[in-house]
């Protein structure tokens, strides 16, 4: 029992990589929340107003960005640690 101990990192990532990772996670979130940016009808995509398709694109971008961060920072992360 005690303060939350950190997972034993395989190799601690550098500050620059952490900052880049944070930026990659935040970027699509900011896009998805920037209502004035996408509150417009055009340009349409296949008849869907900008408002709608932009947010769906931001969601797809979230998957791309978090996958990048996963590859960059968390490749060494493991599941069970032989504790079961």
């Amino acid at each position: 029992m005690g303060d939350t101990p950190d997972l034993p990192p395989s190799h601690p990532p550098g500050t620059l990589r952490l900052l880049l990772g944070a930026a990659l996670i935040l970027f699509p979130v900011v896009l998805g929340l920037a209502v004035p940016l996408y509150q417009r009808s055009g340009p349409e995509l296949g008849g869907i107003p900008f408002f709608y398709w932009f947010q769906m694109a931001a969601a797809a971008l979230t998957a791309v960005c978090t996958s990048l961060v996963y590859r960059m920072l968390y490749r060494g992360e493991r599941d069970g640690k032989g504790d079961r």
Binding site: A60, T62, A63, T66, Y70, Y74, E77, R78, D79, K81
Partner: peptide, 14 residues
């Protein structure tokens, strides 16, 4: 575990 969850969180936005 952690890896399973992290991978899911990065793919589930699809």
């Amino acid at each position: 575990g952690a890896k399973t969850v992290r991978r899911n969180m990065s793919v589930l936005p699809i």
